[in-house]
Design a protein around this nucleic acid. Structure first.
Length: 737
DNA sequence: ATAGGGTTAG
């Protein structure tokens, strides 16, 4: 009875492939033409069941097509589905095996292709010339040199090294495994010298930085194609030889080589990196001539070019003109804004990106986090932190950089505890993670924590670099730890063999100046191999102010003005020192110079983030929508401050010239406006965090101490160089900044 | 069917 059943119950895959209907019948079959347009795994499943219904699933042709689509489709990841289909096939033909090797090679676990190869060989099947390029690609991708060498052995044993594709794949496998010499041996050992093998070798030399050898090979290529030109040009770009890259591009154009998308992208990025905006514009017009203007990749590269050269309007225009923006388009423009220090704009573009439905990736976050850090936008920063943990964990390769960026963001936004938490939760800390944390502690005046971390770092076997020492020395200078500073500066050269740079000297001289050790500071300057910069003279000048040393101040100021004649701050600082000594003639003279030179002052600006919105205040600001309430609050604050015994220090009237313009009462200072707004916008007891672009003046510092006590609020203020934590009438800087 | 461009940012 069973034997008389229709043949359909017999597993059809047992039928030999000779049962396949003629190819042209298959090729025109409706299910298969559907396959070509299949864009999702779901519709693929539907087509698969269609194939089964129509009895096509017993044809190797249909199955190989199905598996191929699973494996190569750019629209979905059908690798696991391919495996499940493959496992139902009892006797796959070599085409199907090869397609599976291809799939494994393209998958994230490429080496698994080799296990499958062992399976195939143990079934007694032999590979063909198509098999090896896939296997070798797997070894190249997963950097499996040993396996690659074994495959090489198989190739030789079975005599497949005469095949062009196999030969080129071998070379590429060795190149990508960093075995350039072996690759060259394969290349030399055969008469086969095709352009593909040349190109693989060229990239090998380029990645090693040996552009001369690469060029020699390039010049040897009898018939160069566009890929070999591009490889050579991008090799130059990678190694920073922009001039050569652009020369070669010109040559390429003269030879009438057909330029492709990749050429354009590489050349535009060469222009961007070398700042060749003129050539960049020329290439831009070529791009339009060639009709590449609609390629997202090229337009993205152009956006990068104009952003880097400061032409943000052009970059924006190109961005707006893109009909299909991808994540890179957004990232590039956001990066352009942060590059130009337009942090607010960067954040608003980021918001727009989220509204548009584009998913930010690690690169987005790596340019948005510094913007948050600059603005003190901790709410957005926290949101990003959650997003990273939810969406980016494990799927991006930049996890360590992201965490480091979070450490920096939290520290700069005033939340050093959160910063420390991120640091402690990290599994793979890079040197820069340690450095970021040390800088965070230094910025917050927590020198002990910075040094504890330094010893922990050494215990973990992490070698400090020059940046680490800038962090440690600035921790000393923020806390006035002279002996520790001296010690660490000495050990830096003695123990760690790191030559001090300008920044290290800067910290030390600042420290010495603050301690009133001017002689020692000057001695240190004389031992320096480089010229001191404005920052150094400026810190000495401030030290003179602190210690009332007028004589030295004049000579330091001369140096400062010589180096930075256009820096208004130099003159103002000197003027303040004269004012302290009641040398009013000199004060007037400087004022005249400033007016004559037409030097404008940088307006003081403070910001506070309330409900994820950053509110900025400049001195005497009256443009805030809640202006009335803010000034009402200011009046109340003044009354309470007076009751608490606060007396504005009028001797500092001129000091204000340095940081902010004197305009009526003291309460107009931007930080006070921001604090008033913070007080009326948050629940009692909420911590306030203020970010200021200049240094905080002494009066505001005193007032803020009292406000923290009167209103029982912790106030964290970041000024240009450090943090002040105000609590119960005391500041963490111990009035030393 | 198969090989070569670290295809755009930072």
């Amino acid at each position: 009875m069973i034997l008389s059943s229709p043949p359909l119950t017999v597993p059809l895959c047992f039928l030999p492939s000779s049962f396949d209907p003629p190819y042209d019948v298959l090729r025109t079959h409706p299910s298969l033409s559907l396959l070509l347009n299949c864009k999702t795994l779901k519709s693929l499943r539907q087509i698969h069941s269609q194939i089964i219904k129509t009895g096509l699933h017993n044809t190797n042709y249909a199955l190989s097509k199905l598996i191929e689509l699973c494996v190569v489709s750019p629209h979905f990841d059908g690798f696991l589905y391919a495996i499940s289909v493959f496992e139902t096939i009892q006797e796959p033909n070599l085409l199907i095996w090869n397609t599976m090797f291809r799939g494994h090679a393209l998958s994230s676990d490429s080496v698994s292709a080799l296990k499958l190869y062992v399976d195939m060989v143990s079934l007694g099947l032999l590979p063909n010339s198509y098999t090896f390029p896939f296997l070798l690609k797997a070894c190249a991708k997963s950097k499996a040199l040993m396996e690659g060498e074994q495959i090489h052995g198989q190739v030789l044993k079975l005599g497949f090294d005469v095949y062009l594709y196999v030969h080129a794949s071998l070379i590429s496998m060795y190149v990508q495994n960093g075995r350039l010499e072996d690759a060259h041996k394969v290349f030399d050992g055969s008469s086969e010298r095709n352009v593909v093998s040349y190109t693989a070798l060229i990239t090998g030399y380029a990645s090693r930085g040996d552009m001369e050898s690469a060029r020699k090979l390039f010049d040897e290529i009898p018939v160069k194609d566009v890929v070999s030109w591009n490889a050579m040009i991008s090799g130059y770009v990678e190694n920073g030889n922009f001039k050569e890259a652009l020369e070669l591009f010109k040559e390429m154009m003269m030879m009438n080589v057909r330029l492709d998308e990749s050429t354009m992208v590489t050349v535009v990025s060469a222009c961007a990196q070398s700042g060749s905006i003129e050539l960049g514009r020329h290439v831009h017009s070529l791009i339009d001539d060639y009709g590449f203007g609609s390629s997202v990749k090229i337009v993205n590269a152009l956006i990068g070019l104009y952003s880097k050269c400061g032409e943000l309007e052009t970059a924006c225009g190109l961005f707006e003109g893109l009909s299909k923006k991808d994540v890179i388009s957004w990232n590039t423009l956001i990066g352009g804004y942060t590059h130009m220090n337009l942090y607010k704009e960067a954040l608003s573009l980021f918001r727009e990106m989220l509204r548009s439905g584009e998913c930010p990736d690690d690169v987005t976050m790596l340019s948005v986090l510094p913007a948050c850090a600059h603005l003190g936008a901790i709410d957005i920063g926290r949101w990003i932190h959650v997003y990273i943990d939810k969406k980016l964990k494990g799927v991006v390769t930049n996890d360590s950089s992201l965490r480091t960026s979070l450490i920096d963001m939290y520290a700069k936004c005033g939340d050093i505890e959160a910063s420390h938490q991120v640091f402690n939760s990290m599994i793979n800390r890079s040197l820069s993670s340690w450095n970021a944390m040390i800088f965070g502690f230094a910025m917050h005046g927590r020198a002990n924590a910075a040094f504890d971390l330094f010893s922990r770092m050494k215990k973990n076997g992490i070698e400090p670099d020059d940046i680490t020492f800038i962090g440690l020395l600035s921790a000393c200078s923020h806390s006035g730890l002279l002996d520790l500073g001296r010690h660490i500066f000495k050990s830096m050269t003695d123990e760690y063999n790191i030559t001090p740079k300008l920044e290290h000297y800067g910290c030390m001289i600042d420290l010495l100046g603050r301690s009133g050790l001017f002689k020692e500071a000057e001695e240190m300057i004389s031992t320096m191999t480089m010229e001191p910069d404005g920052v150094i003279w400026c810190s000495l000048l401030k030290a003179c102010k602190m210690h009332g040393n007028l004589e030295l101040a004049e000579s330091f100021a001369q140096n400062l003005i010589r180096i930075e004649p256009e820096n208004r701050g130099s003159y103002v600082l000197l003027s303040n020192i004269y004012a302290s000594a009641e040398r009013w003639n000199e004060v007037a003279k400087i004022r005249t110079i400033l007016i004559d030179k037409g030097m404008k002052k940088v307006p003081g600006c403070s910001s506070i983030e309330i409900n994820s919105v950053v509110h900025e205040f400049i001195i005497g600001d009256k443009f805030h929508p809640q202006n009335r309430e803010i000034y009402g609050m200011l009046d109340e604050m003044d009354v309470l401050l007076e009751e608490a015994g606060f007396v504005p220090d009028t001797s500092e009237v001129l000091q204000e010239m340095e940081e902010e313009w004197k305009e009526g009462a003291l309460r107009h200072h931007s930080e006070k406006l921001a604090i008033a707004f913070g007080l009326i916008s948050t629940k009692p007891g909420t911590k306030l965090t203020i970010v200021k672009n200049l240094r905080v003046c002494r009066n505001c510092h005193e007032a803020t101490k009292l406000i923290s006590k009167i209103y029982k609020r912790e106030i964290i203020a970041r000024d240009r160089t450090r943090f002040h934590h105000f609590k119960d009438g005391v500041c963490s800087c111990n009035d030393y900044w």
